[in-house]
């Protein structure tokens, strides 16, 4: 059962990576990053359910770390979308192909 959960989380992670690599809309790229973070969260929760028998570590450690991942995801989304708004105001685009000032 644990391996099933981990496989699903791995599939979701790979989908997020494929989204980051293929999409050109910066907002959709942020959504794919959220997918990646959620795959990591699913791993944390699964291990906190199944790895409790190892001594010295509380069984809820995984859940606490999942909460921290959510904090980081929320901060990332707020700052990232603020950047997108500022970028759109200055350049009039959200396509990562047109935002290439720092390229080369």
């Amino acid at each position: 059962m644990l391996t099933t959960v981990l496989t699903i989380s791995g599939l979701m992670f790979a989908l997020g990576v494929a989204g980051v690599l293929t999409r050109r809309n910066i907002i959709v790229i942020f959504m794919a990053i959220e997918l990646i973070l959620n795959a990591a969260n699913l791993n944390f929760v699964a291990f906190s359910r199944y790895w409790a028998s190892i001594g010295g570590i509380s069984p809820h450690t995984g859940e606490v770390f999942a909460v921290f991942v959510m904090v980081v995801a929320a901060a990332e989304a707020a700052v990232g979308l603020g950047l997108v708004i500022a970028l759109y105001r200055n350049r009039g685009t959200v396509s990562v192909d047109d935002i290439d000032l720092l390229k080369w």
């Binding site: 921290f68 980081v72 901060a75 707020a78 700052v79 979308l81 603020g82 950047l83 708004i85």
Partner: peptide
């Protein structure tokens, strides 16, 4: 540290947007 991070994110998002 997470609460400080959230605080910085709020201020940063406001300044940026």
């Amino acid at each position: 540290a997470a609460s400080v991070l959230i605080m910085m994110a709020i201020v940063g998002a406001l300044v940026l947007a």
